[in-house]
């Protein structure tokens, strides 16, 4: 045990000993390295960042007011079709009410991003809290949670969301911010149970581990154990789930708006735009196809990012 042998780097010693050596790094840096090597995930991340920037700067970037109607220019075609209905002011054309499609697409990103992140944040705060308590203490909370999940699992998410939204649409909550708040609530009510159940499962398996026993042995309180030991170790699958929950919330909004029970027109969202244009879809397809493309790109990006995060954080997780 000489100081000299301590002085050489781990790497050199490993080389001397001829054993395989990987540099020791924290789990998170390691995960980031793995994520960075995943080209699809990085492309997804870039798109997500761009979408966020567009959403944040929508009022500055969008060339026109997304709800302003320029009736003479209605149904003008996008620049690649030009022809007699082309209006050079509207790059991607205008819809049947003469609203600039480009501006509407940009403003829609704003709603989508908000819809994607806000309910996810709410859902995870509630779900993690309840799941931790249920998993850690068991008892009534745990029983209630399990029964509740049984019921919620018999209800397809979307069906549940639709019923909540339909019932409360005509209330003041339903009308607030064009229905945005109601969608937040509906998504949160439906999804927190799944997160709670996931957290509960993690906590159940973690709390038997030696390091939790050790923490308990040195007198750590339940709050400390939950915060410092259980949560950090349960975080990886939760982050992955969150990465998938963002696009599924966006999808829910798009479906609701497409069906006519989501965000109220004239507030533009991609779902609303598709709904608006769907009646005349066979004659003027672009007002419908363009938002469809936007949704697809954003959904794909989130999925790639989610897949990448899963592979990077928790390779054992399936699907």
């Amino acid at each position: 045990m000489t100081t000299a042998s301590r002085a050489v780097s781990t790497q050199e010693r490993a080389a001397v000993l001829n054993v395989i050596h990987r540099q020791q790094r924290s789990l998170w840096i390691d995960a980031w390295e793995r994520l960075r090597r995943n080209r699809f995930a990085m492309a997804g991340l870039v798109v997500v960042i761009v979408a966020c920037v567009l959403a944040a700067l929508a009022p500055l970037i969008a060339p026109y007011d997304p709800v302003a109607q320029d009736t003479p220019a209605n149904n003008s075609s996008p620049f690649w079709e030009q022809g007699q209905y082309w209006d050079p002011r509207y790059v991607l054309g205008a819809d049947q009410l003469g609203r600039d499609i480009l501006s509407r697409l940009i403003w829609s990103a704003r709603i989508s991003i908000v819809i994607g992140f806000v309910p996810t944040a709410i859902v995870f705060s509630i779900g993690i809290l309840v799941g931790m308590v249920a998993g850690f203490y068991g008892g009534i909370v745990d029983n209630l949670l399990m029964r509740l999940t049984d019921v919620v699992y018999a209800f397809p998410d979307l069906l549940f969301v639709i019923i909540i939204v339909t019932s409360l649409r005509a209330t003041p909550i339903g009308e607030f911010l064009g229905g945005l708040i109601l969608i937040f609530i509906a998504l949160a009510v439906v999804s927190w149970v799944g997160v709670a159940r996931l957290t509960r499962g993690q906590v159940l398996s973690l709390k038997e581990k030696e390091f939790v026993e050790a923490a308990r042995a040195i007198g750590a309180g339940p709050g400390h154990i939950m915060r410092r030991h259980l949560l950090p170790n349960a975080l990886a699958p939760l982050i992955v789930t969150a990465a998938f929950s963002v696009p599924s919330a966006m999808l829910a909004e798009a479906v609701l708006s497409f069906l006519g029970i989501g965000i109220r027109p004239p507030t533009p969202t991609w779902g609303v735009m598709i709904n608006d244009g769907f009646v005349v879809f066979s004659t003027t397809p672009w007002p419908v196809l363009l938002p469809s493309i936007c949704i697809s790109i954003v959904m794909l990006s989130f999925t790639f990012l989610g897949d990448g995060l899963r592979d990077a954080l928790d390779p054992r997780m399936k699907l």
Partner: peptide, 22 residues
């Protein structure tokens, strides 16, 4: 499986209608 799990069905429907129908 990527397309089917990520792109919403109504968007796929729109694209299919556009290509195969319209």
């Amino acid at each position: 499986s990527t397309i089917g799990t990520t792109i919403p069905s109504f968007v796929l429907a729109i694209v299919f209608i556009y290509f195969f129908g319209v």
